[in-house]
Design a protein around this nucleic acid. Structure first.
Lengths: 132, 132
DNA sequence: ATAATCCTTCCCATCATGGTAAGGTCAAGC
DNA sequence: GCTTGACCTTACCATGATGGGAAGGATTAT
């Protein structure tokens, strides 16, 4: 299977497949006599795994660890769970942060007349850098 | 006031002040005879405004628009409110997305034994790229 | 045989930010 | 007045994950 076929089958672009290989996330692909990369269904499976992990927002480092665990069929599930929970914690933190921003901004917007007059609590707040 | 003093006073690094100037977000600073950039309290005020807008997660484009409105003392507050609400909507979307990821991942982690045994629903899910 | 399509590598761009290097300037101490 | 150290300037490189594109070779279809 050529790289573009593997790309189509896995949902990872050919460009990214080469990139993942170059940074060592994926093993170097076998090559045809002409130097073309060859993939089989196992490779595609691994690419799908990477793609889904990306979709989940795992970092490349986390994906590398997950890939290693995925490959190791005797891994303890607690190792996987630890990575997943660490990512859940990261997501929680990010969500909390965004919610804070969002609520503050929404409050300011709610306090703004939103009409033709120039006075605006949003600008007043942005102007006032004394707030934490 | 030198650039590093303006940086200290505004919380924007000297590096970023130069960058913002280079992309046209800020007007070109006045220069001393030797070519040093000079800033006054108005400039610092504007830098603080930019910094707070960044803290709020506004994009550079949004900040450019907010800066223009801030400078225009006869702006209609509805223009500001529109930008703010657009950003609230972006934040809501991002939060919803992250929450979905987080909840799915948390659910998978909850279903994982998390012990020495190798079977793990998290890996099984990542493996199965047929899910939406 | 030729044209179209694919592959390869290599380089460039993104965006906001940081680092660093080379060279000019200023202020303080002697 | 001269040295020294701290500051300024510009210019370049790097990040991380991704896309775009060019140049040149390989395969495939007609």
């Amino acid at each position: 299977m050529n790289i573009s076929e593997a790309a189509a089958a896995s949902g990872v672009t050919a460009k990214m497949i080469r990139y993942y290989e170059s940074i060592g996330l994926l093993p170097a692909a076998r090559r045809s006599q002409a130097g073309y990369r060859n993939y089989d269904s196992t490779d595609v499976h691994r690419l799908q795994f990477v793609r889904r992990s990306r979709d989940f927002g795992f970092s490349m480092d986390q994906i590398a660890a997950l890939l290693a665990l995925w490959t190791d069929h005797s891994r303890p599930s607690k190792d996987v769970k630890a990575i997943a929970l660490a990512h859940v914690a990261e997501l929680d933190e990010k969500i909390t942060h965004l919610r804070g921003l969002r609520d503050t901004l929404k409050h300011l917007a709610d306090c703004c007349h939103g009409d033709h007059r120039p006075d605006c609590p949003i600008l007043s707040d942005l102007e006032n850098s004394l707030r934490p």
